[in-house]
Design a protein around this nucleic acid. Structure first.
Lengths: 198, 198
DNA sequence: GTCTATATGGAGATAGAC
DNA sequence: GTCTATCTCCATATAGAC
């Protein structure tokens, strides 16, 4: 039996995917072992705190990704470019609607009570970062707050509906509507009739 | 020990609430027994198919409620009145954002694979019913389809965000925005100091 | 219809050899 | 770091008395 030596950074994304597909409770150590090709011994070597620690670190990993690819740009970058970057990042991250938001899924069941803080902060920072970019981009503060909330919640809702209907076109349509609502006047590939940005 | 004789119609809503709060996997028969004050014997008397049957019937119960209070009016009633009724029903049903959508929660984890059809139909009929009412109300078909999708997904997203942030005002704000998007010109309480309910 | 056993499986977790 | 064996507990589900 050829032994493969692993690092935590290699297995964590695999574990994240299991949680994303099954949810926290249905993701058994058996499943996680299969997907990572790791025995329980190795799993507990990396994560002495067991399943709860795995979820904690998965949440932290996701947060780090969003900080780098979404929040930081929105908070400190050029607003228009940062928002354009957000649309790209979101579309890539959620695999154009075929992948669910693990944090949103955790928020909806009993898992929220176990990981309340990271879940809260993930969404709070997203909304505030987008709000900040909108304001710096010239939007009125009150309108910016409402729009930021609408966008984040719209993405989550689109993921729910896309998965429920098993139809990822729901996601791309929703993303397009939200882009328009934010006022996306960047040049893009035209597909069908499109409201001209006046 | 005073025996209380129950009917299925009495216990089903209690079971629904347990599923709503915990999700399918975390809702154990132990919990369900506590909340319904029923032993496993009684539970299996009502639901020989066990937990899966309970979830099936809960889903059917929810669907029936929405058919009566939302879908039917939208499909066959006077459009403006039916849409106004939908806003009321949604606000009441989700307890102004304090209650999660069980069907949406089921859609996000492995539970979807067990109950794919009822989940799919719940959302599909909602979107189509609203679309129908919008068209009969004078909206352009293409716009109506997009708007219907936007509303249903917006409600789901609002529930996710409200629960994640533990802030139900997210839900009321989202509902108000969606009403405006649909073009709610019914007389409504003016923004500002809300008429206190108590 | 209700209850109290009880059966059985799989879950999370640990120990210790290699 | 990896594995296998094992522990304990609680899950779903059943049986049968009342």
């Amino acid at each position: 039996m050829a032994r493969t030596v692993n690092e935590k950074s290699d297995v964590l994304p695999l574990i994240a995917e299991v949680f994303r597909e099954l949810g926290y409770d249905a993701a058994s150590l058996g499943q996680i072992g299969e997907r990572t090709s790791l025995g329980k011994g190795s799993l507990y070597h990396f994560f002495p705190g067991g399943k709860a620690q795995m979820a904690q670190e998965v949440l932290a990993l996701i947060d780090a990704w969003f900080v780098q690819n979404v929040y930081e740009p929105l908070e400190t970058g050029e607003p228009r470019a940062a928002i354009a970057q957000m649309w790209r990042a979101v579309d890539v991250y959620f695999h154009a609607g075929q992948r669910v938001c693990l944090v949103g899924a955790f928020a909806l069941d009993a898992t929220r009570d176990r990981f309340g803080e990271p879940i809260r902060l993930y969404f709070k920072r997203w909304v505030r970062a987008l709000e900040s970019a909108l304001i710096r981009g010239g939007a009125e503060p009150v309108a910016a707050a409402a729009l930021a909330e609408e966008v984040v919640l719209g993405i989550q809702g689109a993921l729910v509906l896309a998965r429920a209907l098993n139809d990822d076109t729901v996601f791309s349509r929703a993303l397009q509507r939200l882009r328009n609502a934010v006022g996306d006047d960047a040049p893009k590939a035209v597909v069908g009739p499109r409201p001209t940005a006046s």
